[in-house]
Design a protein around this nucleic acid. Structure first.
Lengths: 193, 193
DNA sequence: GTCTATACACGGATAGAC
DNA sequence: GTCTATCCGTGTATAGAC
């Protein structure tokens, strides 16, 4: 009947489509029928792979958080100086924003608690904890001033996160990595010993 | 019939109720019937005062943005030093967060574009422009280092905004004003000349 | 201006054939 | 595993009495 070829990995197709639609229009503005149309697949197929619309969002969320955790861990777990590792995290976040804005947007922007009520706030998720741990380590080493941990994390990572939000909202024109160096230096200076 | 007294200002009642429900459960998780129930008013009354659910959100948004603009303007338009005025903005934001978390949350957190599609992103709204202007002035005066304006704004106001988000998400226990001084000093140091 | 009752569309989810 | 057709609850909005 239909001309379309079967997708080799329908689950992936559904997730990718949902991610694009969710970030562009918002979870509640996308019906499962929209996903069906965009992915050129049937409702039945979707509900075969996922029990509910919410479970699609949940799967996306879990995937993305764990990918991001992995990426950050990789960057952190080398033997460079703490400052270098922090800069590398900035760099990673900026590159992810440019290369996969939908993913970044879904993680950062989406108010997950509105559609994943049982999920704790993003900022308590692993990627953010890793950044916090980095700050802790810096204080223990003495390269960062002794400050409240949350406060110091906000000072160091608040600026790049804000830049990312602005970029995703279309309020910054140039790619973020162009501003990496001055931004990092300014943010670092706010907490450096 | 009903025991309830007529509210003197039903429009206000509707807006206040909607704000509370929207911030707590999210715009799309609240039906007009929920507002009706909570406000102890009839659907008819609601639709008498507002043409649509969306228009309630729009009215709320406009009110809050203009209140916030006013508050920031007041704080900025005195003759203190630029540093003092920036500190005062931090202070204002923190106090608003404590005293009117719903309002702050609605302005900062809500993804307005999901339900107010024609609205530009919050961060291009007047309150944020005022903060940016402040940074501009600081550079012109030479008290702030010459940096890209957006970048410097993110460095100065990114940290407090992040603290507010964390506080609203329940990830910070203590009232924000307690941390005003160390936070301001750290953020200021990142851009000070 | 406020009320109740109701229209009507939409969206999530299911049934059951292939 | 994928499809189409359909169910049914929910939610916005309207009608029309008071």
């Amino acid at each position: 009947m239909s001309i379309r070829k079967r997708h080799p990995d329908p689950r992936r197709l559904i997730l990718d489509t949902a991610l694009a639609l969710f970030t562009r229009h918002g979870y509640f503005n996308c019906s499962v029928h929209d996903i069906r149309k965009t992915a050129d697949i049937s409702i039945g197929a979707i509900y075969h792979h996922f029990p509910s619309k919410e479970s699609i969002a949940k799967a996306l969320y879990d995937d993305l958080v764990s990918q991001m955790s992995g990426a950050i861990s990789d960057v952190i777990e080398n033997d460079q100086s703490l400052e270098e590792r922090c800069r590398a995290v900035f760099c990673l976040l900026f590159e992810l924003t440019e290369e996969q804005p939908d993913r970044m947007s879904f993680i950062l922007h989406a108010r997950h608690r509105e559609f994943l009520p049982s999920e704790p706030p993003v900022c308590s998720a692993r990627p953010f904890r890793l950044m916090r741990d980095l700050v802790k380590e810096g204080m223990d080493q003495g390269v960062l001033r002794p400050l409240d941990l949350t406060l110091a994390s906000a000072c160091l990572f608040g600026p790049p996160i804000r830049m990312i939000q602005l970029r995703l909202d279309g309020l910054i024109e140039e790619p973020l990595p162009l501003n990496l160096e001055p931004l990092f230096q300014a943010a670092w200076r706010s907490v450096a010993a």
